[in-house]
């Protein structure tokens, strides 16, 4: 079985069923992006490694209870964030972090919307692809061709997002009947 053509959503379903190959595929798909993302925050290779390993071990340990309320990438993003924050709190909070936080707080405006949204996360993850070495980036982009967001497809084809969404929905309907399982695009 080749899993690299599966969407994140499909992999999530297989993972819940205890499919270890799907688990491996999720790892292969995300390890580099998550590593680079966490490394930029933690600035320590060993700690970053521990965080990523813990995230994936936990993902498998709890796979039976796994349910996606958002996208897989958003789920992994929060898992990495929470564990990185734990790393901060395990150690004595370093001054440079406190300074950064203080700077952030000084710009704080009461009532402004600070919620990190799906699209921010998607953007962060996509930005991470740019940090990959050239050849890996190419492969990554190729392998994800089928999981482009509506917006990206719309942009690259110069058509409206609405058109893409309708066409994709129509295509999904066909696929759903064919495969008998729920397929959704990643960053709807």
């Amino acid at each position: 079985m080749v899993y690299n053509n599966f969407t994140d959503q499909e992999l999530a379903v297989l993972l819940k069923e205890g499919n270890h190959d799907a688990f491996l595929e999720i790892y292969v798909r995300y390890y580099s992006l998550l590593y680079i993302f966490a490394y930029k925050k933690l600035n320590c290779r060993e700690e970053t490694k521990d965080v990523i390993q813990e995230v994936f071990i936990a993902l498998w340990t709890c796979h039976e209870h796994f349910s996606l309320t958002t996208s897989l990438s958003a789920y992994l993003y929060s898992a990495v964030r929470n564990r990185s924050m734990n790393v901060f709190s395990r150690k004595k909070m370093e001054d440079k972090y406190l300074q950064s936080l203080q700077g952030f707080l000084s710009q704080y405006e009461a009532g402004a919307d600070y919620q990190i949204r799906e699209k921010d996360i998607a953007l962060t993850i996509e930005k991470g692809i740019a940090d990959l070495p050239c050849k890996m980036r190419e492969i990554f982009e190729l392998s994800r061709k089928e999981h482009l967001t509506y917006k990206e497809i719309a942009q690259s084809l110069d058509i409206s997002e609405h058109t893409v969404s309708t066409q994709v929905k129509r295509a999904l309907k066909v696929l759903r009947v064919k495969l008998g399982m729920l397929i959704l695009a990643c960053f709807v």
Partner: peptide, 23 residues
């Protein structure tokens, strides 16, 4: 939410250029 937002924008190291072999 505020803290998560801070973390989202936190960058202690802008240069995370890992080689393919590294990764």
């Amino acid at each position: 939410i505020l803290l998560e937002n801070w973390f989202h924008h936190l960058e202690t190291n802008h240069q995370a250029d890992f080689s393919e072999d590294d990764l």
